[in-house]
Simulated scan of single mutants.
Amino acid sequence: MEWNEKLQIIIDYVENHLQRKQEPIDPQEIAEIAGCSYNFFQKVFSYLNGISFSEYVRARKLTLAGYDLKSTDMRVVDVSYQYGYDSPTSFTKAFQQFHGITPKDARNQDVRLRAVPKMQSSVKQQYMWRLEQKASFRLIGKSIRISPWNGNHYTKIPAFWSECQRDGTFSQLTSMDKGDSKGLFGLFCCDKKSLNEAEYSIMVISDKELPEGYTEIRISEAAWAVFDCVGPVPQAIQNGWNYLQEEWLVRYPFQHAKCPELEWYSDGNAYAADYLSQIWIPVVDSKQ
């Protein structure tokens, strides 16, 4: 499920609890829908919408409370408890800060109240993305050593993919692929001994015995921001990285987890207009 779909479900959940069930919002239920810790969800919500989740919920409570005071004969004390305030005093203070008037004065016919409408998550995104918590997994494949600083990786990496396709490496990797979705990974691993070299690998998730000439990498459990790139490669994946570097990574609100960034290439026609590749960014899910 994409992140914007999860966000819409959570928004609907908030509205259902505030208006129909009149029950407290359960952080654990929010975390289960989001697929990450509640604390991590709050960070993502704030980053995407420019308002914290608690501020949004508070604004909706006070908007709905204003509707109730205007349109019903409910007592102020009943409205305050309905929207989760401990006392009419705390409710009155919050209401006045939000609307600029007291709950009692809100009943006057000529008084105008502030309204924050129900949020609608946008589906007009250039790149669909979601958060996925993944258990640790093992990658096996072949690697080459390159210098990422002098630009030769732009030619060496495509040449390496072509070589693996010609010499049967792709076929062997495909036969050992145990991933939930079949496909090949491309990843950089920096050389701790030399800042001028890195190791680039083409790999699959597998539990098979390591063949001669192959290497393995174990990826720790982590949360991943997964970005879908649709279109022929390498253009689609390169455009995805440009988008991340120019926008998402510039405003990157999360700590980078201690895992390499991954590219994933689905099993299909890599030159098709609807071909799917992905960029995986490991992020720290700070659990409470």
Rank of each mutant, 00 (worst) to 15 (best):
M1P: 05
M1H: 06
Q8C: 01
Q8R: 01
H17G: 00
Q19I: 07
R20W: 11
K21R: 13
E23I: 15
P24H: 06
Q28A: 13
E29Y: 06
G35T: 14
K43Y: 05
L48N: 11
S54D: 10
S54I: 03
S54K: 05
E55G: 13
V57E: 06
L64M: 05
D68F: 15
D78L: 09
Y85I: 00
A94S: 05
F95D: 12
H99R: 04
I101S: 10
A106I: 04
D110C: 08
R114P: 14
L131N: 08
Q133C: 06
S136N: 02
R138K: 03
G141C: 00
S143L: 08
R145A: 15
G151D: 03
F160A: 14
S162H: 10
Q165D: 03
F170K: 07
S171Q: 14
T174I: 15
G179C: 06
G183E: 02
F185E: 03
D191A: 04
K193R: 04
S194G: 06
E199D: 06
M203T: 13
V204N: 09
P211E: 07
E216K: 07
E216W: 01
I217C: 08
A222G: 07
G231E: 03
P234I: 09
I237V: 00
N242K: 09
W248H: 02
W248S: 04
V250G: 12
Q255K: 14
Q255C: 13
L262R: 02
E263F: 07
D267R: 05
Y271N: 13
Q278A: 04
